[in-house]
Amino acid sequence: MSFDIDVTLQRGERVIACRFTAPAGITALVGPSGAGKSSVLEAIAGLLRPGAGRIVVGGTVLFDSAAGVNLPPERRMCGMVFQDLRLFPHRRVRDNLLYGHTLAPPERRFMSLEEAAAFLDIAPLLDRRPRTLSGGEAQRVAIGRALLSGPRFLLMDEPLTALDDTRREAIIAVIERIRAELALPILLVSHDRADVARLADQVVELGL
């Protein structure tokens, strides 16, 4: 399982060129703000169409401008944890968690709702509305929602910002357990060098 990315993205006036390969494990995408780190994640998730290039994850071609391949987001099997979380406000935590789970074919699911709730310590939150959650709780629910959709890899956009130190430690522990116990490749965007040094197996620099 590896990432093999080579894309150019047009964002307004700016052209973002990004090219890297990364083996399994945790890969950190770092760079100054405005470098287009989030845009690269969105392109891999299929939410942003690159001008040209190729996106291959674990041998599956998700996008290839030369071959005319462009899988829609729902067929890319990626677990995206957005920086702004994007929990569905009209659904309880339980139904947020189950949203992708019920859509995934059974053979792709690798954990149940109960397992995910225990893994992330969110069992007491299941009947709550997203707007009543604290930042750390909402972050764990967003990670759980992505894991339950049976993804082949995870994309995490700044999963550690806007959290106090205790919450941070809890999320870092979760990410390390995802690597150790679930063996899911993770591509995460971060601007914090200390976090990157601690978590990442390899680092990709995106310049301005």
């Binding site: 729902e74 957005f82 859509l103 992505a146 959709s149």
Partner: peptide
């Protein structure tokens, strides 16, 4: 967009 990444068409 979030729904799409979770597998919804």
């Amino acid at each position: 967009q979030a729904a799409r990444t979770l597998g919804a068409g």
